[in-house]
Simulated scan of single mutants.
Amino acid sequence: MSRVLLALPLLALATACAGPERTAAPAPLPVPAPAPAPTAAPRAPDGAAANLTIPTRLPDGSYATPNRSISAAAAAWHLRAAFNVAALNCNDPALAPAYNQFLKAHRSALKAAHHALTREYGDASAFDPAMTRLYNYFAQPPVMAQFCATAAPLLHQVAALPAGELPAIAPAALAQIDRPFTDFYARYDAWRADLAAWRAGDVPATPRLAYATEVFRAEPHVGGGTVTLAAR
């Protein structure tokens, strides 16, 4: 009996030395993820204004430019207008002499094209405003760099052609000059879609599907970035 009484004080002493009972530290609260930084609005391509009026996009993906579906006479005269704008606006001193050579070499074909196109419009009251719009079309600032890069070598090439060759190559040459404008319109339409998605809070899907505009026009004389001229 005395052994039992002796063990009880030892048990009490061991319990006192054990110290207070430890409890587990509380788990840290989850830190919320930072809000995504706001993205800037997409910018219009090539430094263009945000309120441009561009030609209508047709069901086949091409654009209703002034150089689409025109007569052979119109193609020759429109090409003359493009070369005139290039000589005046492109930073290349060699273009003015080339343009004068072009006018001299193809004087007869250009005179015939002018008469035929004037008859198409009926009179000067309709023809003159249409030509003003055409010159303004070729002088669009966002497209000027690519227009000059395309029109300059073509001007030198066409100016060196023999007289009488202009009607045969004008449609293909004009289609090549028109390409920088239709490419710009496609980029501008894509930007409009991106801007609408940004305003709605959506991230535009990437990569974006785009029209391959080269398949929408037949350019049998165009190849390798230059007009292929058939020998006669």
Rank of each mutant, 00 (worst) to 15 (best):
W77A: 12
A96I: 09
A96K: 10
S69I: 03
L58R: 01
H78C: 07
A145W: 09
A116G: 08
A81H: 14
S108D: 08
D92Q: 15
L88R: 10
S69F: 01
S125D: 01
V143E: 03
R80K: 15
K104L: 13
M144Y: 05
Y99K: 08
A64Y: 00
T65H: 06
R80Y: 14
A87L: 06
D92S: 10
A126M: 12
L117T: 11
A145K: 13
N84M: 09
A87R: 07
P93V: 13
R133Q: 07
V143L: 13
Y121T: 02
Y99D: 04
Q146C: 15
S71R: 03
H114V: 15
N89R: 02
A72P: 08
A87Y: 05
A76I: 00
R133C: 08
L58C: 01
V85L: 06
A64T: 02
K111V: 06
S71H: 03
A149T: 14
A76L: 00
S62D: 02
L58K: 02
L95H: 11
T132C: 00
Y137A: 09
S71Y: 00
W77Q: 14
H114I: 13
V85M: 02
A124D: 13
A126E: 13
D60H: 00
A75W: 07
K104G: 10
L58V: 00
A74K: 01
N136V: 01
M144C: 08
T65N: 06
F147E: 07
D92N: 10
H78P: 06
A116K: 15
Q101T: 15
A149C: 13
W77L: 15
S62A: 03
A98Q: 03
A64N: 07
W77K: 14
M144D: 07
A72S: 13
D123L: 04
F83E: 09
L134E: 01
A94C: 06
A98W: 06
K111T: 13
L110S: 12
M131E: 02
F147M: 08
A105I: 12
A72G: 10
R80T: 09
F83M: 09
D123V: 02
